[in-house]
Nucleic acid binder design. Structure first.
Lengths: 138, 138
DNA sequence: TTACCTGCAAAGAGTTTGCAGGTAG
DNA sequence: CTACCTGCAAACTCTTTGCAGGTAA
């Protein structure tokens, strides 16, 4: 759907050098219709499926954090032993299935108006995230 | 405010043996007017201030998790390198100050009605937590 | 050529675990 | 007495870092 050139330009526009590792990571993360959630470990596995040329863990961490810093990825606030990232960078919320460790997107439209009536003097609001924990019935 | 006997009974009522370590931990966590947020490391420091008799890290982790399991403590969902716990076990929400790693309570009253309009078939909602990330102006 | 990037291995941080000895009921 | 609890050290998992070699501009 998107060719290497698209991601090379995208990376350049973010101020990141379009190395071949970064382009490969982009293709795994962004060359698809739907956004998705992933851990570094899962990303490493997706990359393995696509190509035998290994990308080192250090590079994965570097790249994912660079993407996050540039706003190309979001990190999700879940208390977990690992970090979860999201290719959906719009303001939105999540279901977290505790039985399966699965994340599902929620949008503002899934809630009646969310309006925070309190503010903290001298502090700026960076984000408002709702996490709805669910578990399988059984 | 609360004596050892209070906590011994409390622990028994939770189905936990009232060992002297657990009673000491209870006094640090619950023998006060206000609830508060803490990490295991901070709890260890609070205990050090109260007494020279050390409680091992393993026991702290065991006890905090036992308390959480029994509903005597809550764990807060923040993406962080460490786990944050809360002696306020009521349903509530948080500001998280990214500049200082400080947590501040929010209640339902600080929001206009929060009403989730979506549900997942076959799944039960366990909690709904809002995390408002803030940063210092400057 | 210069600043940035990659990859390996080692280090680091927080947390969990195995097990021997101790304690509550 | 028996099940549970504590404490130490080692192990584990995820993540970060130092540094040497490589690559983009």
């Amino acid at each position: 759907m998107r060719d290497n050139y698209y991601f090379i330009e995208k990376l350049r526009s973010l101020g990141l050098r379009p190395t071949k590792q970064r382009v490969r990571i982009c293709k795994v993360l962004f060359d698809r219709n739907d956004t998705f959630h992933f851990t570094i470990y899962e990303l490493a596995n997706l990359l393995k499926l696509k190509s035998k040329e290994k990308i080192s863990l250090a590079t994965l961490y570097n790249t994912v954090h660079a993407f996050k810093k540039k706003g190309y990825l979001k990190e999700i606030s879940i208390n977990s032993d690992k970090s979860y990232f999201d290719t959906n960078i719009s303001d939105h919320h999540h279901f977290f299935n505790e039985s399966t460790n699965e994340l599902i997107d929620l949008t503002d439209k899934d809630f009646d108006n969310i309006k925070l009536k309190k503010s903290l003097p001298g502090k700026k609001i960076k984000s408002l995230e709702i996490l709805v924990k669910v578990a399988n019935n059984n």
